[in-house]
Simulated assay, not measured.
Amino acid sequence: MKGIILAGGSGTRLSPSTDSMNKHLLPVFDKPMIYYPLSVLMLAGLKEIMIISTSEDTPRFKKLLGDGKELGITLAYREQTEPKGIPEALTIAEDFIEDDNVTLMLGDNIFYGQGFTTTLRNAIKNHRHATIFGYRVKDPHRFGVVEFDHHKKVLSLEEKPDDPKSDFAVTGLYIYDHRAVQIAKKLQPSARGELEITDLNKEYLKWNHLDVELLGRGFAWMDAGTQQSLFEASEFVKTTQQRQGFKIACLEEIAFYMNYISKEALYEKGKSMEKNDYGQYLIEIAERKHSEQYWDSIDHHPMLGVVEND
């Protein structure tokens, strides 16, 4: 399984903040937005991940994250010359995906919740052809909506319907088999001139090859693509971290917990940032790994859960 993060786009909804900066590099409280989707793919157990962004911003992501070696993973990069829709990410990454399955995630989506890692890993383990994730929202007419029966069989997909058939939105997290690349190549642009991810998912639905995983109570899903939602996401992360004492989407902590990096590497990374709270947190984790208290708490970490390493 390969991983892809689509972090391109023009970020017009966040202008003027994004007039000189990619929105996925904006902070969501104490870390760049890109950390959140990257943490999801790492928690899923994926070690080969591609970040797709603009030609102007790709060097900035490389400067921030490098080749992934410090996290014990492999990061690759590709450029999207202009925003032509989510499915284009699959065609851009064709040589990266090859014959593998792929998990595609939008760079401005943030997931949080007890057991999320288990849910995601089970979805990947039981994956057949295509899997989407549904989340109950108050205003489904603003989203792509998935309708399903009591067996969770997908019945229909609608893009921003006036009269939604369910109140479950389709989130920006998708799992596909290798056929997704060829399907994406055959899609035609919509009226707004872009390839639509709903159209790709509908192709799988035609063959009865589309599954849905529902994120129920206890989960939070945020799309930090507007000024209001970005502020709310930052407030959520700040409040949750202060109350629980854990950091959300701390890439080094995840890499350490999953045995991708050593305690010494974690400690040194913390020392390089010891004048701020993030660095002090890494040092604390490094010094607590072998204590019973640490392992008791980490087993109940909402964004780590009980992860079995492959």
Results as ranks from 00 to 15, higher is better:
I5E: 10
I5R: 12
L6S: 06
L6E: 03
G8Y: 04
T12K: 08
R13C: 02
S15V: 04
S17C: 10
S17H: 08
K23Y: 05
H24A: 00
H24P: 03
L25E: 04
L26G: 07
P27F: 13
F29Q: 07
K31R: 15
Y36V: 15
K47F: 06
M50D: 09
I52L: 06
S53P: 08
S53E: 08
T58F: 11
G66V: 07
D67E: 15
D67A: 06
G68V: 04
K69C: 07
L71I: 05
L75S: 08
Y77I: 00
K84M: 12
A89V: 13
L90A: 12
E94A: 10
D95I: 01
D99C: 03
D99T: 11
L104E: 09
M105T: 15
N109Q: 12
I110W: 07
Y112I: 08
G113F: 09
G115C: 13
T117I: 14
T118F: 04
N122C: 09
I124H: 11
A130H: 03
G134N: 06
K138H: 10
H141Y: 13
G144Y: 03
V145G: 01
F148K: 06
F148Q: 09
D149W: 06
L157C: 02
K160V: 02
P164G: 10
P164H: 10
A169G: 05
A169Y: 00
V170Y: 03
V170N: 02
G172K: 06
G172Y: 10
I175S: 05
Y176V: 01
Y176P: 05
Y176K: 11
D177Q: 12
H178W: 11
A180F: 12
I183V: 11
I183H: 12
A184Q: 13
K186Q: 12
R192H: 14
Y204I: 08
K206M: 01
W207I: 02
W207R: 14
N208A: 15
N208Q: 15
H209D: 12
L214Y: 00
R217T: 03
A220R: 14
M222E: 09
S229G: 00
Q241S: 06
R243M: 11
K247W: 05
I248P: 00
I248H: 14
L251G: 07
E252A: 13
Y257F: 13
M258R: 13
K263D: 07
K263W: 03
E264W: 05
Y267V: 00
E268I: 15
S272E: 15
M273S: 06
E274V: 04
Y278A: 11
I283Q: 07
Y294K: 02
S297F: 04
I298V: 14
I298M: 12
D299R: 14
M303P: 00
M303V: 03
D310M: 00
